[in-house]
Amino acid sequence: MRATDAEKALAADIWQHFHDQNYEQAQALLAHALETSEHPRFKRIQARFYLFEGREGDAATIIKEILPKVWTPGSWELALVRSGACRAKVLKKQKVLYFPLRKCGSTSLLNMMKILTGEDARGEHVHQEDDTRKPVNLATMGADYPGYFSCTAVRDPIDRLLSYFHGNIVGRDHLMVEYGGKTEFYGLPTKPGLDYFLVNFVRYRQVFISVRDHTEPLVSSIGANPAVFNWIGGLGQLSDLAAKLSAHAGIELPLLQDMVSAEKPGKVAHDMPIAVQALYAEDYEAYGVFF
């Protein structure tokens, strides 16, 4: 279902009000849009607004309903409803499926996929090529992609969270840049201290979709069954993955360094607020052996 120019303009206006922190106006425009248009993009905005309001259940109900009609669902949408599908880098010629997970060595591994396809590695820019990553159904990928080598790398969720905080939010002013240089967005500092961030973690995940994307539990994205992948491992085992990929694709890959987090976490799981511990409890259960 193609959006008309008017629908596109209306959606842009809604987002503009939201980003201008004029939420009441954004809501009013969205209500108008929902009354006058059947286009799924407005339902998606409604789901996003529900998340902003902390109404995850209501957001999930909408996403479940519209997901089949959405051409390129966002990572957060797939994860919210635990759709069983995860966005993957699909290398058709080399028959490789790589499932990039945020803060799990995905920059290095996406660059490695570039080497496999004969392209130059491109550093952080590989993350902007989302159009090349399509949702792959994990339960049926063996049948959907016969002969493919499927792989992903995972990481201790608290390490991921701290790496995201130190590397992205503090190190690269991620939130400030994303929200046009604002020092606060809906009352939350875009460059908070760690303790403030952790205490308000639930609200940060509601307000900033990029915080949500970077801190989704692994199980929300790739399910809880590591056996569906031909290879899965931690960041300390990437050289093994490089060797397996070399063997599978018949291409000599340069030696990939095993990664050890440079940012030693100052906090461990039991220091974290209950909300953080609860969010990642299933990750430790399903994937703890790889951390």
Binding site: F52, G187, N200
Partner: peptide, 17 residues
């Protein structure tokens, strides 16, 4: 849609003591 989630309410969400 409702006026439930108005600016006053949203402001309070970041001021939990």
């Amino acid at each position: 849609m409702s006026e439930l989630y108005n600016t006053d309410i949203l402001r309070l969400t970041t001021r939990i003591p």
